[in-house]
């Protein structure tokens, strides 16, 4: 039986792993290669490495970190941040990544997804999408948008690009559906409302997304406890859960989380 995956995420600036709240207030959290090896030995199913500055100057540093990280582990590695072309994808895969995550460049140029999935296979193209809830009082305020009544109120989800700095004004569900039809092999949604808060994942969003697309979904943003991860995999119907702070702070190991999930009947690799 296919196991649910637990994926620690390493957000990187200038070759160091950082941790912030709602994409801001970044603090140093360690050396990426050391952290990658530690999470591998704790039983992580995959690792995600995101270059959150995504600057041109940072490219060489990123390639170097990808090579050293990939050489140090024997689990899959996804790399994202500032990927703009199929040539960028090729360089990162050649450096030892198994998958790339594409976010801003895919929104600005959706054909990039199709091009990359045709060349490298859809199994290595992950669509990362940053979303934020836009609350409305009544449905007529957001015509054409997918509205859901959440415990916090009626809302739709807007797509953000450039690391959460710029709103696109596009229904997130429609964008993901388009990206899947173009060849995205996995979806990795992050929430600007929940990221770094430790109060749980955006479950209504995840559950709706799972009903709409037939590719695997990696839930991201908001894990504060193993129970939150359980909820993302059950209520949120995700295939994998990504988390950062909960692991970086040493509150729980990956193995702690997996043992908890196993005790709740979730298939995990222990």
């Amino acid at each position: 039986m296919l196991a649910k995956r637990i994926i620690p995420c390493l957000d990187m600036v200038a070759g160091r792993v950082v941790k912030g709240v709602r994409f801001r207030n970044l603090k140093d959290a360690g050396d990426p290669v050391e952290l990658a090896m530690a999470y591998d030995s704790q039983g992580a199913d995959e690792l995600v490495l995101l270059d959150i500055t995504a600057s041109n100057e940072g490219r060489e540093t990123l390639i170097d970190v990808v090579e050293r990280t990939a050489d140090a582990i024997m689990i899959p590695l996804t790399v994202g941040g500032g990927i703009r072309s199929s040539a960028d994808v090729r360089r990162i895969l050649n450096a030892g990544a198994d998958k790339v995550s594409i976010n801003t460049a895919a929104v600005r140029n959706p054909s990039l997804i199709g091009e990359c999935s045709r060349i490298f296979g859809s199994q290595c193209i992950v669509l990362a999408v940053d979303v934020r809830r836009i609350y409305v009082r009544r449905a007529s305020e957001a015509s054409g948008k997918t509205l859901i009544e959440t415990p916090e109120g009626l809302c739709w989800w807007d797509v953000y690009i450039y690391g959460g700095r710029q709103a696109v004004g596009m229904d997130a569900f429609k964008w993901v559906e388009e990206a899947v039809s173009l060849g995205a092999g996995e979806i990795m949604p992050s929430s600007l409302d929940f990221d770094g808060t430790g109060r749980g994942y955006d479950l209504p969003f995840l559950a709706e997304l799972a009903d709409r697309v037939s590719v695997p979904i990696i839930a991201s943003s908001g894990a504060g406890t193993p129970k939150h991860i359980l909820e993302a995999l059950t209520i949120g119907k995700a295939d994998a859960a990504l988390a950062a702070g909960i692991f970086h702070r040493g509150e729980y190991t990956v193995r702690d989380v997996k043992k908890f999930l196993a005790s709740k009947g979730i298939p995990v690799r222990l």
Partner: peptide
């Protein structure tokens, strides 16, 4: 059809 495609992850 009837399952997530691609199959991505650890299976026995």
């Amino acid at each position: 059809e009837g399952r997530k495609v691609p199959q991505i992850g650890w299976n026995t």
